[in-house]
Design a protein around this nucleic acid. Structure first.
Lengths: 194, 194
DNA sequence: TTGTTATCCGGAGGCTACCTCCGTTTTTAT
DNA sequence: ATAAAAACGGAGGTAGCCTCCGGATAACAA
C-alpha cells in the first residue's frame, strides 16, 4: 500500500509521455554509440523532436539516461546466462559468458561509456544494472565451484573487474584475440587445484 | 637535422613560459585528483594565476594536459620495474609490479581519469606513456618467461588490460583485497604448464 | 460529448565552460 | 638601448546544461 496525498485515484501515465520516453531512448542509443557518453543532450532532444525540458523530465541526469539505455543491453546479457547454464558444462558456460560479455561491450559501444562515467563521481547509476550482471556471473561461478571445476574462494566480482579492463581497451583492432587470451588466463587461474 | 625556415638562430624557451607550464601542471594535478577529468580548465588557469589563453597555448587540448600530468606518475611506475627486477625473482617481481600498478592508480586517482578519457575518442594521449608502461611489463614478463616461470605465449598487454579493469572499479572500499585476488588469479593463470 | 483536472510538453533564457583571437607585455639577443 | 621574437591574458563568440512556467493535451467523470 502506498500513501495517497489526495482522495483522487491514480491515473495511468499519459500515452504521449510514454511515446516520448521511448523516442528519447531510441535516439540516445544511437547518439551514445556514435559520440560516446558526452553526446549533447539538447541535441538528442532535438533529434527526438521534443524540447530539452521534456528530456530532462524523463531523465533528470545524464547518468539516468545512460543507465536506461544501458539497461536493455544488460538484460540481454543476463538472459544469456540462463541459456549457457542450461546447455553447457559449468566451466564452459562461464567461459562463454565471459567472452560474450567482452564481445558485447566492444561491439555495441554503449556499455563502455556507461562504465566510464561511473568512475570519478558518486553516481548511483549502474546499481540496478550491476545487480543483474552480478547475479548472472554469480550463478555461473557458483555452478562451476559446485562442480569442482574452479577454486572455491573465487569472488565473481574479481572476474568482472578484469573483464571491464578488456572492454575499456577494446578499441584496438586486435582486441578480440587479446580478450580471448585474457579470458583463458582468468579461467586457468581460477581453476587452481582442480 | 631539422629544417630551418629562416637564417635566424633558435632561441631558448623563455623562462616565464617554463615557469607557467610547471605552475599549470602543479594546479592541474590537484584539480584532476579532486574533481576528476572534467575539472574546469578555465578554473585551473585562474588558480595558476594565468589567462585561459596561456593554458591552451601550453596544452591545446584537455587530453594533452591530462597526459602531461599523467606522465610523471607513469615514469615512477616505469622506474619501479627496474628496482623489482634487480631485487626479486622473476615471478615475484612481476606480481609485485602488478600490485603496485593497481595500488598506484587507485591511490592517486590521476591515472584513472586519464584512462577513461582515452576511451570513446581518437585521442593520441597515452601513446607516449603507454610505451613506458608497456616496456616495463614487457621486461618483467620476458624475464619470467625466460626463467620458465610462466607460459611462453603470454602477451604482456593482456595483463595490463586486466589490471586497468581493477583500477577502474577501485572506488569500492574493499578494492585492495579484490585487486590482490585478481592478481593472484592472473599469475596463476599465466603459469599454466609451468 | 463536454467539462474538469492532473499530467505533460516545449522552448526561451540564465548560467557555465570551452576555446580563440589579437593587442599588449615580457624576454632574449644584438 | 633597441629590435624582434615569444609569450601573456582576458574579452568574447559559441555551445551545452538545466530550469521554469505558460500553454497544450490526455485521462477521467458526468
Amino acid at each position: 500500500m502506498v500513501t495517497r496525498r489526495t482522495e483522487s485515484t491514480d491515473r495511468k501515465t499519459r500515452t504521449d509521455a510514454e511515446r516520448n520516453r521511448e523516442r528519447i531512448l531510441e535516439v540516445a542509443k544511437k547518439a551514445f554509440t556514435r559520440s560516446g557518453a558526452n553526446a549533447s543532450l539538447d541535441e538528442i532532444a532535438k533529434q527526438a523532436g521534443i524540447g530539452p525540458g521534456t528530456l530532462y523530465r524523463h531523465f533528470p541526469t545524464r547518468d539516468e539516461l545512460i543507465e536506461a539505455v544501458y539497461r536493455t543491453e544488460v538484460e540481454k546479457l543476463a538472459a544469456a546466462e540462463q541459456t549457457f547454464a542450461e546447455t553447457m558444462p559449468p566451466l564452459d558456460a562461464l567461459r562463454a559468458w565471459m567472452l560474450l560479455f567482452v564481445d558485447y561491450i566492444a561491439t555495441k559501444k554503449i556499455i563502455a561509456p556507461a562504465l566510464n562515467s561511473m568512475v570519478g563521481g558518486p553516481s548511483k547509476m549502474f546499481e540496478a544494472s550491476h545487480a543483474q550482471i552480478w547475479e548472472a556471473i554469480r550463478v555461473l561461478v557458483k555452478r562451476a565451484v559446485d562442480s569442482g571445476a574452479i577454486r572455491k574462494d573465487l569472488d565473481p566480482i574479481d572476474l568482472l573487474r578484469a573483464l571491464i579492463g578488456v572492454a575499456n581497451v577494446a578499441t584496438s583492432p586486435d582486441w578480440q584475440k587479446s580478450a580471448r587470451r585474457l579470458v583463458d588466463i582468468l579461467i586457468t587461474g581460477a581453476r587452481s587445484g582442480g
